[in-house]
């Protein structure tokens, strides 16, 4: 071994290195960045997100296939187009708030702090504001409320809730306290969304001493929206997303 020419040995081992390098290059590894926990999590989230999207798209496909089936049926003359349009109209009226609805849900009664003592530094803390109502509405919507009304004013997509001094305005009508918020949905879930400790409703009641009384109801009737939907600027762009 010792008598060997070092150059030959160097050459031999260089060949080994060359083989290793070229084999590595053949693999076409784009990047050998190590997988960190963060990147793992990001990828996981991405996959979940994509899977959800796929699931939703599959649902849409199913829905469209059903629609197609209906249209085929109409074409064959098995179903009357008037009936189908009637059903469609009903669905659309319900979702736009044009029909009165009935179902289980909760009714919340809200009124200003009746105590003569002022809580906090500001008299404003003792009265109900538009923001309070908006937050409660949001909580209810998150909890899956299907229909909401405030003092028998149906909350629809265009409903505004603004401060009007001692009153609030909704759907162009002024309403004063006490406010009765009615919501149809899973009663227990709706109740929890406004009544559980730490929710906005609970803070209103326990911190600001504002009257806030949610109650479960077997059956609630929510009136239809009575205003008009006027579209001056917006124009429908066919179907689809």
């Amino acid at each position: 071994m010792k008598n060997q020419n070092p150059k030959i040995i160097l050459g031999l081992f260089s060949i080994i290195v060359g083989i290793l390098i070229s084999t590595q290059m053949k693999l076409k590894v784009e990047s050998i960045a190590p997988i960190t926990l963060k990147s793992l999590q990001t990828t996981k989230d991405e996959i979940t997100f994509l899977n959800n999207e796929i699931y939703e798209m599959e649902k849409i496909i199913e829905q469209k296939e059903e629609e197609l089936q209906t249209i085929m049926d109409i074409h064959k003359g098995e179903e009357n187009i008037v009936d189908i349009l009637q059903d469609d109209l009903e669905v659309n009226m319900t979702s736009s708030g044009r029909t009165a609805l009935e179902g289980p849900g909760i009714k919340i009664t809200m009124y200003d702090n009746m105590s003569s003592e002022i809580i906090g530094l500001d008299i404003n803390d003792d009265v109900i504001h538009d923001v309070d109502i908006l937050n409660i509405l949001n909580d209810l919507k998150i909890a899956g409320a299907e229909a909401i009304s405030i003092n028998d004013q149906r909350v629809v997509a265009t409903s505004e809730i603004i401060c009007g001094g001692p009153i609030i305005r909704i759907n162009g009508k002024s309403i004063g306290t006490p406010f009765f918020i009615k919501a149809i949905g899973d009663p227990k879930l709706l109740m929890a969304s406004v009544n559980a400790p730490g929710t906005y409703g609970d803070i209103l009641r326990s911190v600001y001493q504002i009257g806030f009384e949610p109650e479960l109801q077997e059956s609630i009737r929510i009136p239809a929206y009575k205003g008009n939907f006027n579209y001056t600027y917006a124009k429908p762009v066919g179907e689809g997303e």
């Binding site: 150059k7 160097l10 050459g11 031999l12 081992f13 260089s14 060949i15 080994i16 290195v17 060359g18 083989i19 290793l20 390098i21 070229s22 084999t23 290059m25 053949k26």
Partner: peptide
């Protein structure tokens, strides 16, 4: 010799 070796190795690889 090393450079040549690496080149030869690369070709072999």
């Amino acid at each position: 010799i090393a450079l040549i070796g690496i080149l030869v190795g690369a070709v072999i690889g």
